[in-house]
């Protein structure tokens, strides 16, 4: 018991050291701005992939239009900072919350279907969002918006990423998460256990939308310009690749998948056009050798939150739960 506690403590110390260390390296320009931006991109991708995991991994649905939510967050927050001069925090939160609202509304019709049809519908909404943004002059149409304040920095991304992961983890290992996983495992049985399946799905969708919105807001205020063409299905596809690379139903897998794929694309930058050949090849090799992704649905023990007291006696001396 004390061993697992010290492991947990160690884990958090490493996280803290990572954050402070990186920030310091950035401040003293030991890591240059370009690398720092890549690191920020990794954080943003982690948020996107982990939130998509909620739908595709834990809830077991197949949504492939996550970039649409990212776009909404980016645009709404950009309107906040550029047009209404809101403080960044406020714009960020408004972006996330409104995106969650839209996700909820989209979910109402979308969850009337499931499986591949749900995939098509989510993709459809992704396309429609991009199409609308292209046609709204207020947000610059196809040219998009420029002159976003450079509000996103390493600390913002780092804090949001960690917070996102902790929140998602705590939800997944609570009654909410159990309900989602039960729906994935057997929807008819779940419904027969008194679970309002539709409402549970909508909740998950709204939460995923919220975090995708946050990620979009961070992204926009990192690059300082946004346009609709950054949020097409190609972006959604990137997220899917990272998600499945890491493993469905594992938040650690999402972190791994997003980090590896984003990192890989940067490392391969010197290879020019071959970069985009090598990275899918690597994906293929991994899928063929590990069809469930790198981690499958496993989660290392020290990131799984502890059960309340009563469970301690229950859980001692038992084989691994997952």
């Amino acid at each position: 018991m004390s061993k697992s506690r010290s492991k947990r403590l160690g884990f958090w110390l490493v996280i803290l050291a990572l954050g402070v260390g990186m920030e310091a390296l950035g401040q003293f320009e030991i890591i240059d701005g370009y690398v720092m931006q890549v690191i920020e991109l990794i954080g943003i991708n982690i948020i996107l992939v982990a939130s998509l995991n909620l739908i595709n991994g834990f809830l077991g649905e197949f949504a492939i239009g996550h970039a649409g939510f990212m776009a909404l967050g980016a645009y709404i927050s950009a309107i906040g900072t550029v047009k209404f001069h809101l403080p960044f925090v406020v714009a960020l939160l408004v972006g996330g919350l409104l995106t969650a609202g839209v996700a909820y509304l989209i979910g109402i019709p979308a969850f009337k279907t499931f499986g591949d049809y749900l995939a098509v519908i989510t993709l459809g909404f992704n396309m429609i969002i991009v199409n609308l943004l292209n046609n709204i002059e207020y947000v610059g149409g196809p040219r998009g918006m420029v002159g976003l304040p450079k509000s996103t920095n390493f600390l913002w991304v780092f804090a949001t990423t960690i917070l996102t992961l902790v929140i998602l983890r705590n939800l997944v290992y609570s009654n909410y998460g159990r309900v989602w996983i039960a729906i994935r495992e057997n929807v008819i049985a779940a419904e027969m256990m008194g679970i309002n399946v539709n409402r549970a799905k909508l909740k998950a969708f709204a939460i995923a939308g919220f975090f995708a919105g946050l990620a979009g807001a961070l992204w926009g205020h990192m690059l300082q310009y946004i346009n609709p063409s950054s949020f097409t299905y190609l972006k959604s596809t990137d997220m899917l690749v990272m998600l499945y690379l890491g493993g469905l139903g594992s938040l650690t897998g999402s972190v791994l998948g997003a980090t590896l794929m984003t990192g890989l694309l940067e490392v391969l930058r010197d290879f020019g056009v071959w970069r985009m050949v090598i990275s899918p090849l690597i994906l293929l090799i991994i899928m063929l050798t590990r069809p469930l992704g790198l981690l499958g649905n496993r989660e290392p023990r020290f990131v799984v939150p502890k059960e309340p007291k009563a469970a301690e006696e229950v859980s001692h001396n038992v084989p691994a739960a997952r």
Partner: peptide
Amino acid sequence: MSLIITALGVSL
């Protein structure tokens, strides 16, 4: 799903 992602990889 693994198969579908593999198909995505082939496509890319």
